[in-house]
Design a protein around this nucleic acid. Structure first.
Length: 565
DNA sequence: GTTGAGCGTT
């Protein structure tokens, strides 16, 4: 195995990091030792200049394909403008009250108007926002102790509290714990990063038990990307607006990506804009925020409907594309209706893309696109249902039952053309730009937690759905990057759908997109279809009343993105 | 010794 010598800063004692078989170094490997780092650089002995190491898709590439990493000592790159928290004085520099996002160039009027220092209202809001809270750390290794937990997180800043929840009798860790930071920046950084703690990727979130205060999403959806726009390009470009903490480009290529900023205001300020990256006009829009869900549901089983499928903005609410932010039904175990209260209405211009519920105990892959929905009354039992309106928009697979990938996979893919084409082109994924075809879906089943030996997952090649719909669906699942990493470690290049497959665990909650069609519209991939949605909760391992189809509101399609945010 | 979605005997 090849090792790469890496030090935090030039001149520091290096740590040897193991490279992969292909010679690359995983960014995750780097970050495991140097939390917060985003790349590597080294001193070129010939020119004495510092050279950056090529980075792409979570991998760092050796300078030379022939000689690999060589004997050079590489040192870490940390996000622009953010001192390394490992430095002893870093916390002073990043005093929470003093910290401001990196502002964009002066030509950016939006930002120059945004004088935080002089805005009482804004200052107040920020002060409110900057309060730290306990964070839950999920997925801890059994062996992780409070000391090691603290030790890990201290690389981000002062840790005020670190605790592991244990079984009172045995003292055995329950696999989760809590941590609290002294600074909001540390907290935000921790929330926006992935964490490899004692060999496990752990998830850090604001606990459900906390009443969520106002939080603004840090992540944006970047649409109309081309394939040659890599994560470095995105990071480089968007870094001028503020620190970019994460870039995720779903693979296979789907013409969009997600960019996470440290500062939510930066993220929000970019939403709705077009930007030119490598000569390509990309469109920035909302990626549904984690905070949105957390504050909406607060521990209940929840369904969240972002509603604004295809990465559209909330300001399109009038267009029946977005109801997730309209406020009704939130967090109350209701299904949310983007519109389309009548599923028999052919021609409704609605689309919902639903996935399973966090509170349902697993990640359901439920792509339920099809507000038009009349066709929903006729099927069932398959992992994926294609329900199409008969308006010829997507002239295939009309009302066909499809087995996505073998039954008993706990996924519900109910894809129907609910008429989204009718919305016109505004903010629709540019299908041509998407370059969507059925190619390039690979399953890379490596790493922990892979339990889908078939490796087929939801193979896009075999999916009878319009990949554009899938692409759009991905926007609903915004932060899937983190979760992908967490759950399917080292699955770089893997098929997220196969990941969905293998991560769906045990939940077979019904996802019925039409309450009016009860009795015949059970889309439960478990195959246990009773013709009555109300009877499937326990069978599906869901708590009674949790399945979407049991909601009386009917015809309301829900989206839960909790596993991707 | 095993397990792997969750939400804290403060």
């Amino acid at each position: 195995m090849d090792f790469v010598q890496v030090s935090e800063e030039e001149g520091d004692e290096p740590i040897e990091l193991p490279a992969e078989e292909d010679g690359t170094l995983l960014l995750s490997t780097l970050q495991a030792q140097f939390p917060g780092s985003c790349g590597l650089k080294y001193r070129n002995i010939d020119t004495q200049a510092v050279r950056g190491v090529r980075s792409n898709e979570g991998r760092l590439f050796p300078p030379s394909a022939e000689s690999g990493w060589g004997e050079d000592i590489y040192f870490c790159v940390f996000p622009k403008g953010i001192p390394n928290f490992r430095s002893s004085d870093a916390t002073e520099i990043i005093d929470s009250a003093a910290y401001r996002p990196i502002l964009p160039p002066v030509e950016n009027k939006r930002k120059s108007d945004d004088n935080l220092e002089n805005s009482t209202a804004k200052t107040k809001r920020i002060e409110t926002r900057l309060r730290c809270t306990d964070l839950i750390v999920l997925g801890l290794a059994w062996k992780t102790t409070e000391d090691s937990l603290r030790e890990y997180f201290e690389t981000y800043g002062e840790v005020l509290m670190a605790q592991i929840k244990k079984d009172v009798k045995s003292g055995q860790s329950k696999g989760f714990g809590f941590v609290r930071f002294g600074s909001y920046e540390a907290q935000m950084r921790v929330l926006s990063n992935r964490h490899l703690i004692d060999g496990r990727w752990c998830e850090v979130k604001v606990p459900n038990s906390k009443g969520m205060g106002h939080q603004v999403p840090c992540k944006v959806f970047v649409g109309r990307c081309t394939e040659d726009i890599n994560s470095d390009d995105l990071r480089d470009y968007f870094s001028k607006f503020g620190e970019v903490t994460d870039v995720f480009i779903p693979r296979p290529f789907r013409a969009f990506s997600f960019v996470t900023f440290l500062d939510p205001d930066v993220a929000q300020s970019l939403c709705g804009e077009d930007h030119i990256i490598k000569g390509v006009s990309v469109h920035v829009s909302n990626a549904a925020p984690k905070a949105e869900q957390n504050r909406s549901h607060q521990g209940q089983n929840y369904s969240y409907n972002a509603g604004n499928n295809f990465g559209m903005h909330s300001y399109h609410q009038g267009n029946h594309m977005n109801s997730g932010r309209s406020g009704h039904h939130r967090g109350n175990n209701q299904q949310h209706n983007a519109h389309g209260s009548d599923n028999t209405a052919i021609g409704n211009s609605h689309s919902n893309i639903g996935s399973g519920g966090y509170g349902m105990g697993g990640n359901n892959f439920g792509a339920n696109m099809g507000g038009g929905g009349y066709a929903n009354s006729s099927n069932h039992n398959s992992g994926g249902n294609m329900n199409h309106r008969q308006d010829g928009v997507i002239p295939y697979n009309n009302n066909r039952q499809n087995n996505f990938h073998g039954m008993n996979q706990p996924h519900n893919g109910n894809v129907g053309n609910g008429g989204w084409m009718n919305r016109g082109h505004l903010d629709m994924p540019n299908l041509q730009a998407l370059g969507i075809n059925s190619q390039g879906s690979n399953s890379s089943n490596q790493g922990q937690n892979m339990n889908n030996p078939l490796g087929v997952g939801l193979n896009l090649n075999s999916l009878p759905m319009n990949p554009a719909l899938v692409a759009a669906a991905l926007n609903q699942w915004s932060l899937l990057g983190n979760q992908l990493q967490n759950q399917n470690q080292d699955q770089q290049g893997g098929n997220f759908l196969s990941w969905m497959a293998q991560n769906s665990g045990h939940s077979n909650c019904n996802m019925n997109n039409s309450g009016r069609n009860k009795g015949s519209n059970n889309q439960n991939s478990s195959g246990m279809n009773k013709g009555d949605n109300s009877s499937n909760d326990q069978q599906n391992g869901c708590p009674p009343g949790n399945s979407w189809s049991n909601q009386s509101s009917g015809s309301q399609n829900s989206v839960d993105k909790s596993n991707f945010l």
